[in-house]
């Protein structure tokens, strides 16, 4: 059975006693809201990382990589099982990263590259196949059960205006923020990053200035896998890890990427936060039964009303 707090940390406002001096309905409502918001931002940060992974791969190769969630799973499972086996946490995270990156590169090299003349739909189906394969492999290696990982700096909640913030939430948000900034720096300030962007804007021209576009695709898969794996490792203390954890995380990362405008990194980050917060609020105020439906309602609304997403490609091209 799935634990109730699987995927999104179900918002659990503190009990009345826990709020101590802060009482009264208005404050309670405010505290509830804050609590939901914190949960939403925490899980939203993971969706943002997953969405960013979708964006990076989509830009480099126009492939929508539905194995993105499995990179998260590999990160989470490696971190939890390796630390359980006595490996220090940072090393376990790095190892998870390495395994996910290897998986990403192998996927790109032996499945995507081989089929580079295939249609987009074929490529998407290849990635779905890869995700099922990786899930199956994980089940064989790690089993079907859930794995725990101790919080990085304890479980004593930090009280803020009546909401309880788990230290691990700060880890998740902090790590995601750092990764997003690093990625932002990479794409706007380094030649290698600009070459990757250039490949997405104009593949032919990138080839003609000497960019090895096949390497760019491999790098994109490696980068996205690393982002996913680190995200999976930091979120595992809150959600536990299992071989199945990648399905929903991947789909929600996809929702984030589509909401932000496919291929737009910043959009994916904003989209991730929106999906996470919307999910936490609806779980808190409506019912946690509908939590997973929120992302899919969002994706339908986006596809119907603004198929380019929030930050869809602007028309700066002059022909």
């Amino acid at each position: 059975m799935k634990p109730a707090k699987f995927l999104a940390p179900s918002p659990q406002p503190l009990s009345r006693e826990g709020r101590g001096a802060l009482s009264g309905d208005a404050i309670t409502m405010g505290a509830d809201f804050l609590q939901f918001l914190v949960s939403g931002i925490t899980v939203g940060a993971i969706y943002a990382l997953a969405g960013l992974g979708f964006a990076i791969i989509y830009n480099a190769s126009t492939v929508i990589n539905f194995a993105q969630g499995e990179f998260i799973m590999i990160g989470g499972m490696s971190a939890s099982t390796l630390t359980a086996a006595g490996v220090p946490l940072p090393l376990a995270i790095l190892a998870g990263c390495a395994v996910a990156m290897l998986g990403g590169v192998l996927l790109a090299k032996f499945a995507i590259e081989k089929a580079r003349n295939a249609s987009v739909v074929t490529l998407i189906i290849i990635t779905i196949g890869a995700s099922i394969f990786l899930r199956g492999l994980a089940e064989v290696v790690w089993g079907k059960e859930f794995h725990q990982l101790a919080s990085f700096s304890g479980d004593t909640p930090i009280l803020l205006l009546g909401a309880a913030i788990l230290p691990q939430s700060l880890w998740v948000v902090g790590v995601a923020l750092v990764l997003i900034l690093v990625i932002g720096f990479f794409f706007t300030r380094t030649l290698a990053g600009k070459a990757m962007l250039a490949t997405s804007y104009n593949r032919l021209a990138a080839q003609l200035v000497g960019v090895n576009v096949r390497k760019v695709v491999l790098a994109a898969f490696a980068l996205s896998a690393a982002l996913g794996a680190v995200g999976g490792a930091v979120v595992t203390p809150i959600t536990f890890s299992s071989s199945e954890m990648g399905i929903m995380l991947g789909l929600k990362g996809f929702t984030a990427a589509v909401l932000g405008g496919l291929g737009n990194g910043l959009g994916a980050v904003v989209g991730g936060l929106i999906v996470g917060i919307a999910e936490a609020l609806s779980a808190g105020y409506l019912s946690s039964a509908y939590k997973d439906a929120v992302a899919f309602v969002i994706i339908l609304l986006v596809l119907v009303f603004m198929p380019n997403g929030l930050f869809g490609k602007r028309g700066t091209e002059r022909v």
């Binding site: 030649l191 250039a198 960019v211 091209e317």
Partner: peptide, 26 residues
């Protein structure tokens, strides 16, 4: 061997300077 392709094929959203910088990529 460098080609200036038909239809120019610039990296449209990147700045003029970034386009030049990428010219020296190799």
């Amino acid at each position: 061997i460098l080609q200036v392709p038909e239809g120019r094929q610039l990296f449209g959203p990147l700045s003029v300077e970034d386009n030049l910088r990428l010219g020296a990529y190799r």
